[in-house]
């Protein structure tokens, strides 16, 4: 009988790309379930279709364009599919979802060589492509009928963030209270419940999948920038709580900015990255033409990651 001969180490930790992605999927479950409860069957359909599209597209690109073994077993395409669905309004037609998946997987991920090689977060790239291509569809916040939790006010039309423009900062601020933590209607599917998102984030921290620094620095920066501007002119600028709890700040900070591939590897790099996202999102919200800027903020900072990584290195043993 022949025995294996290979260099050390001879054992391996019970961790794989697949197990990490599985943890992310588990962490996304609470927010996904909330979106199903509020938006009903159509949301389930969007998410299922989005996941299936992403996995299918990755398989197709590997098989017929790159001619190599499929990488779908690592489950990263499933994560992208879930995140893409969570970034879309509940009324998005499925053909638009598919285009989003083509851009996310086909363009943002596989063009660069598949998992680990992409510069920009695939799901966000897909969403931003849809936002600039189909602005009407992507800002139609009509809540579809069939939500499992009844008594959803027919009032929808605009998200809280959009209402800043309609009603002014003061009125918008007043609409955000503690109950916003539990449900924040009128927005992308994944943005409904801050609490569900944070529960998933805590799960990832406990499982040691991610470090808290990126997320915390985004929250702190958003709170600080909003706090300062709000203190200067409360009539024009919304406050810290409003900006933390509305739009994609929590979803983005917990699940998109913490993507290994497109975020810095060092703790301090992560803090710089998070501060950059926090400043950018607030500048876009206050002064930009879009009511929400989380996607753009993350994509811009994704671009800066190689530079940040170059600046921060580990402390080496026995060296100054």
């Amino acid at each position: 009988m022949a025995y294996i001969v290979s260099p050390n180490p001879h054992i391996h930790a019970k961790v794989s790309t697949r197990s990490l992605m599985l943890d992310v999927i588990i962490a996304l479950c609470p927010a996904a379930v909330v979106s199903f409860l509020f938006y009903g069957l159509s949301e389930i359909a969007i998410m299922a279709f989005s996941v299936a599209s992403c996995v299918f597209l990755e398989w197709v690109v590997n098989r017929y364009m790159l001619h190599r073994a499929s990488s779908t077993g690592d489950l990263s395409a499933v994560v992208t599919g879930i995140l893409l669905a969570m970034n879309l309004p509940p009324s998005t037609p499925l053909w638009v979802v598919f285009i989003g998946a083509v851009v996310a997987i086909g363009v943002a991920k596989m063009t660069f060589g598949g998992i680990g090689q992409n510069i920009w977060n695939p799901a966000i790239t897909g969403r931003v492509f849809l936002l600039v291509s189909f602005p009407a569809i992507m800002t139609d916040w009509t809540i579809p009928a069939g939500g499992l939790i009844g008594n959803v006010d027919a009032f929808s039309g605009a998200t809280l963030l959009q209402q800043v423009g309609l009603l002014g900062a003061k009125a918008a601020d007043a609409m955000v209270g503690l109950e916003t933590l539990f449900s924040n209607m009128g927005g992308s599917a994944g943005e409904i419940s801050a609490l569900a998102l944070l529960a998933g984030w805590v799960y990832l921290l406990v499982r040691k999948v991610i470090k808290p620094w990126i997320t915390l620095s985004i929250f702190a920066t958003v709170a600080l920038v909003a706090g300062i501007f709000h203190a200067i002119d409360p009539a024009q600028f919304t406050g810290a709580l409003f900006n933390l709890l509305t739009g994609g700040v929590i979803l983005g900070a917990c699940f998109m900015a913490t993507d290994y591939v497109t975020s810095p590897m060092s703790a301090w790099g992560g803090v710089i990255f998070g501060v950059g996202i926090g400043i950018l999102v607030m500048m876009i919200r206050y002064f930009g033409s879009y009511p929400e800027g989380m996607s753009f903020a993350i994509l811009i900072m994704n671009t800066a990651v190689p530079l940040i990584d170059r600046a921060f290195h580990q402390k080496k043993f026995g060296r100054a």
């Binding site: 294996i4 680990g116 590897m265 026995g318």
Partner: peptide
């Protein structure tokens, strides 16, 4: 327990740098 798994792309998780006792 000992057969090496197939290598896949680096996902930049940083675990190797975190584990290295020499920094």
């Amino acid at each position: 327990s000992t057969r090496r798994k197939l290598e896949s792309n680096c996902i930049r998780c940083g675990r190797c740098a975190e584990a290295c006792p020499m920094g």
